[in-house]
Each structure stands twice: as C-alpha cells, then as structure tokens.
C-alpha cells in the first residue's frame, strides 16, 4: 500500500495539473474596468512626464552645460541656468531637514512611547491636522511673525559664529551701533525654519507609524530583561523603526524641495549663489517658476519647464530612495491577519 501512494505522488509532481481559471462575466467586467482605470492613470502620468521632458529638453539643449553652471536667469537673451536657484533650493531644504528630523523623531517617539494612553489618539489627530495646515498659512506666519522674532537670534549667531563662513553676513558689523538688522530678513535661514516646521508633521506621522508597529513581544522581552523604557526604545523600537525614520526624512525632504508658496512669501529672490545662510536673499526653483511664469515667452516657459524638470528629477531620486529603504525594512511586512 505505501509504495502505491508514493507512486501516485511522483506521478503528480512529474506533470503538474493545469489550473485554469474561468471567470464569470461580472469578474471579467470588473477586471476590465480596473485595468482601464490603471491605464488611464498611467496615460495621464506619462503624458505629464513626457511633456515635461520634451519641453524641458528644448531649453536644456539650447543652453548646454551652461544650464547647470549659470547663475543668471534671462532666457530671452539666452543667458540662463539653474546654479543659483538649485543652490538656494538645496540650502533651504537642508536647513529645513536639519530642523525637522530631531523634531519629528522626538514627537513620534513621544506619541508612540511616552504619551499617556488617553492622550495618544488625540495627539495623532492633532499631528495629522497639522500636516493639513495649508502652506500659505505657514508662509504668512514666517513672513509676518517669525521674521521679526528670529532676527535677534540670527544676529546673535552671526556675531558669535561669524567666523564660520556660512554664518557670516556681509555688511553687518557686530559692534557698530548704526548697523541694522535688515540684512538678516528674508534669508534662507528663515525660509528653512518655516519649511522645516511645515514638513515635521508629515515626517513625524510616518515615523510614528513605524515605531508603533514594533512587535509587542520584543518590547516586553526587553522590559522583562530589566531594560528601562529608554533602553527598550533604543534596543527595540529605534532599530525596528529605522526604515520609518529614513523614509519619513526623505519624504519630508521631497516636500521641502518642492515647497513654493511658503518660500516665495518669505524670501527675496536673488540670482547669485548665496552661501551665507543668514543673509537676505536666496531663491528656489519653485518660487522662480511662481515668479516668472506670468510674463514668460514661449522659450522662457520651456526654460521654466527645464528648471521644473531638474526639481522633479531631484525629488524623484529622493522618493525612490525612500521607498527602497522602507521596502527593505521590517516595518509593515506582516499583512496576514
């Protein structure tokens, strides 16, 4: 008897049974509808991407490598490039992310680990709501409140750390009673703080999601071995949530790079590379587009598209990096209930 069974199994594994699915009319319709929805979205998105590439390439091929190295922006005379705006964009985003990362990690840890249980749900709602506060509101706040409030601090930093090149400010003498603080207004520093506050809620809510998924068994194991709460956080929660931290940071960085209105309201645009972050005047790609689209000629529009394309590619690289990191981490791996 047992030999027979084995023979049967061998026969079965030798030629696998063909499984064919016969779907009902309802299912065929459903799948066709779903597929057409996917196709429509694919078409729209490809159209946007391809259009941007084609129009942008007109301007890029016209300018050549000067597109990367030129600081000025007068496309109609053929003298234009994104060096200054790109530098400004990166500066503002860097300041924003330097501020946002500790803030968002701290807030996410507080909500997922330290907050009283009764308060947790409402704190999550508050953070989600803050992520929905329109950027123009942050811009207004930065432009009309923060600029005045931050000037003494900018002045202080410049006075005491002016020997570090990036904190140096032209035309400001620390001891001079006649020197004004207007050289500190509308700087990359202020724009960076505003954008940093803007992206913190989003980054923080992604990080909190990752932290709260840390397995209870491992948490309890750490506590049972005598770890303090902070010991448990460093040995279980943070390693588990590393993907969330990196992913949240990169998503925040992507938002910070593309932010338009808050930056536009705060800064005063200049077309030179401005390495002194405390000094008046900086620029970003998105505020350049907002500034120039209106009276743009056909060719200048292409040049703006090219600048937009550069911004898009930069954000794209960062986003794909983020999703790769998130996909590789342990967070969110389990979906079988």
């Amino acid at each position: 008897m047992p030999t027979e069974v084995i023979e049967h199994r061998e026969a079965a594994s030798a030629t696998p049974r063909k499984l064919s699915t016969v779907r009902g009319r309802q299912d065929v319709l459903f799948r066709a509808a779903a597929r057409s929805g996917g196709t429509t979205v694919l078409l729209i998105m490809t159209l946007v991407g391809v259009f941007l590439f084609v129009r942008g390439f007109d301007a890029i091929t016209d300018a050549g490598t000067a597109f990367i190295t030129t600081e000025a922006w007068s496309p109609n005379e053929g003298n234009f490039g994104i060096a200054a705006v790109l530098f400004g964009t990166v500066t503002i985003a860097t300041i924003a992310i330097v501020l946002a990362v500790p803030l968002s990690i701290g807030t996410a840890l507080y909500i997922s680990e330290f907050a009283p249980r009764g308060l947790k749900r409402s704190l999550i709602t508050i953070v989600d709501l803050m992520a929905a506060v329109p950027s123009v509101v942050y811009g207004l706040w930065g432009f009309l409140w923060l600029t005045d409030a931050i000037l003494p601090i900018a002045e202080w930093i410049s006075t005491h750390f002016g020997w570090i090149p990036i904190f140096d400010v032209d035309g400001f003498e620390p001891g001079d009673p006649l020197s004004t603080t207007t050289v500190f207004t509308a700087s990359a520093f202020i724009a960076g703080i505003v954008v940093g506050l803007m992206v913190t809620p989003i980054a923080s809510s992604i990080m909190r999601e990752a932290f709260s998924q840390a397995p209870v068994g491992e948490r309890e194991g750490a506590l049972a071995l005598g770890a303090t709460r902070w010991g448990m956080v460093t040995s279980v929660v943070l390693p588990f949530g590393r993907g969330g931290i990196i992913g949240g940071t990169m998503l925040g960085l992507g938002r910070a790079l593309g932010e338009t209105i808050a930056v536009y309201l705060v800064i005063s645009p200049v077309f030179v590379i401005q390495p002194n972050i405390l000094q008046t005047g900086t620029n970003s790609i998105s505020s350049l587009v907002a500034l120039r689209f209106n009276e743009a000629s056909e060719f200048e529009l292409s040049a703006l598209m090219a600048a937009g394309l550069a911004l898009f590619l930069m954000t794209l690289v960062i986003n794909f990096g983020a999703s790769m990191v998130i996909a590789r981490s342990r967070s969110g791996a389990e979906s079988e209930g």
Binding site: V48, S286, L316, F320
Partner: peptide
C-alpha cells in the same frame, strides 16, 4: 489584478508623487 502591468503603473504613480505641485500647475498652464 497584480502582474507586470500593475507593477509598471505602481512605479509610475510612485514616481509622480514626487511631482512638485508647482510643476503640475506649470504643466496645465503650458
């Protein structure tokens, strides 16, 4: 309806989340 086509759509959609809002506006404007 998973498959290679769905993967393509997912990749493109993920790429487009990176589209800065001003560029979306610029596209419609142009």
């Amino acid at each position: 309806v998973p498959g290679p086509f769905a993967r393509l759509v997912r990749t493109v959609v993920e790429a487009m989340t990176a589209l800065p809002s001003i560029v979306a506006g610029l596209f419609i404007y142009a």
